[in-house]
């Protein structure tokens, strides 16, 4: 990591802490914002957040590793989460999943070579009446068919 990059990240984190308040309770919103911008929370970012909030870096890592939507390793630019829970499963999740895997040439858990898409399963997205459903970043897509899902991913 370049020094200028480090400096700008530090500045960014200090701004976030000023915005949310220098308080442990600000940790989750800060992590969510850092990740939204950088797609993950790097070791350096974790150390800086810990330093500014005056907690141990392990505390920060512990929180990141607990939540399934927070990442300490680089992810693709877009995160696709297909719902794997019961109703979406009944409504044809498997066929959608297989079509996506074939089309992108990766398995669930993987990232495309061009870093465009990381593919994951998620638990119940609360779209059970409109399944199968998936999230792409923070947007939700419902009533998926294999064809429709692949088409949507093509536009990401």
């Amino acid at each position: 990591m370049l020094v200028v990059e480090k400096n700008s990240l530090t500045e960014e984190i200090e701004e976030l802490v000023a915005h949310y308040g220098n308080d442990r309770a600000s940790l989750l919103p800060i992590l969510q914002d850092v990740q939204r911008k950088h797609s993950y929370i790097s070791d350096y970012a974790q150390q800086e957040i810990a330093r500014v909030l005056d907690i141990h870096p392990v505390e920060v890592y512990g929180v990141i590793s607990f939540y399934s939507f927070l990442y300490s390793k680089p992810m693709g630019r877009n995160i696709v989460r297909l719902c794997q829970t019961i109703t979406c499963d009944l409504q044809g999740k498997k066929a959608v999943a297989e079509a996506i895997e074939r089309e992108l040439g990766i398995k669930f858990g993987g990232t495309t070579k061009d870093n465009r898409i990381t593919l994951e399963y998620a638990n119940c997205l609360g779209m059970c009446d409109q399944g199968p459903a998936m999230l792409i970043n923070d947007k939700v897509y419902s009533y998926l068919t294999p064809e429709k899902a692949v088409e949507i991913l093509g536009e990401v």
Binding site: R24, L31, V63, F66
Partner: peptide, 20 residues
């Protein structure tokens, strides 16, 4: 941030406080 357990009220409070 994607944790079913946080629907349990004390886990939710922990999460609000910036904890696991």
């Amino acid at each position: 941030s994607g944790a079913y357990i946080c629907g349990e009220e004390t886990a939710l409070i922990e999460s609000l406080e910036g904890q696991r």
